[in-house]
Design a binder for these strands. Structure first.
Lengths: 196, 196
DNA sequence: AAAGTGAGTAAGTTTTACTTACTTATGTAT
DNA sequence: ATACATAAGTAAGTAAAACTTACTCACTTT
């Protein structure tokens, strides 16, 4: 077996088609007709395999996310202290987005506004990722590496938010992401604080 | 003069109508027919005063943002040190969103994905807000209150991102925002760092 | 009073997401 | 092999929503 169970070829072609189109324009202005044309199938087939246009988007996102989590997991496992682990999460996250802008754009801009997204499998993966970070922080607190007067959940959100917003502008305006600079700045801020 | 130059009554009614509807459901599932009905005008009038449905949304957002900036400006002026100013920005931002969820939802979820938004007047106001914070940080660096080995722009994005992501979940799922907890946690993290 | 202007309308058209009823290919048991 | 079942794919629509166009009415200006 070369591939995972991707299902029928038409389904794969449709996902590839949207994946390609989303590089060129925003999701809202991509029509189902365009997707079908790019995939070389008819419009109706989209609705055979996906509930609706958005469901297709979530499924594409899911694929990206699976790879992303895999990568992060591997990197984290190699580190010892919780601070090192957090640093590698921050770095890997930014670098993943930098290498895979489409993924970042879908995740940060295209799906969040639809209520249905929060019932999707893709969102389940996001939550898993979130919980991984909370766990790192809780472990760090237990080991005395991280101060205990902060809520792990809020700290996680602070870190994820810092990453997201720092990359957002570059993603929207198609600029190159200076991963090192951003990572370095976020780590300095979060680990040691901004006071001299 | 009671009001600012709001333009013709129909225009105001349309904006009020969308403002009310967006409290109940997400922008995508609000139809122009609904907006017109709620406003007590015909659908065509919307297109007399606004380029399209999204343009109307940006204009509503603009109104909210104007008030937001006014409030922040006043709060900031009362503080002395740059750290105090940053703290009050964080607090005022979170409290504004807590008090005005519609505004936060539009800003964080509904407009960001459309390229047109980045040409709107509303986005200009966002940039102004961003620059205000950069300025506070630059002043702080000059006065020696903030370490100089961080880029003011990245630090600004880190702070804004931390705020946004910390509130996002509560906004989406309509939970109450614990402004004090979030503000306190972000300040602790950003000012002093997470290490004990 | 005639002309001009801006607010507002009624009745379309077009676009686009989504459906339905059908055909063609593929694999499987007798 | 042949009949049957199931899955892949298509063609031609429908419905709803965004957006247009050509018009009317009221009110001001000269």
């Amino acid at each position: 077996m070369k591939e995972k169970k991707n299902g029928p070829p038409g389904r794969t072609k449709i996902m590839k088609a949207l994946s390609a189109l989303i590089k060129q324009k925003d999701f809202h202005s991509i029509t189902t007709a365009e997707i079908a044309f790019q995939a070389g199938v008819t419009e109706g087939l989209i609705y055979k395999y996906f509930k609706d246009k958005r469901d297709l988007l979530y499924t594409v996102l899911e694929e990206y996310f699976e790879a992303f989590r895999e990568y992060i997991k591997k990197e984290v496992a190699q580190r010892e202290t919780s601070i090192e682990k957090l640093e590698v999460v921050i770095r890997a996250n930014i670098e993943s987005w930098s290498a895979n802008r489409v993924f970042a754009r879908i995740l940060l801009l295209e799906v969040r506004s639809s209520p249905d997204y929060y019932k999707s499998r893709a969102y389940e993966l996001v939550k898993k990722y979130y919980r991984t970070i909370v766990q790192i922080i809780e472990d760090g607190m237990e080991k005395g590496e991280i101060r205990r007067d902060i809520k792990p959940e809020v700290l996680t959100k602070t870190i994820l938010g810092a990453i997201e917003h720092s990359c957002l502008g570059d993603i929207i305006f198609e600029r190159t992401i200076d991963a090192d600079l951003i990572c370095d700045n976020i780590c300095k801020t979060v680990f040691k604080g901004v006071m001299p």
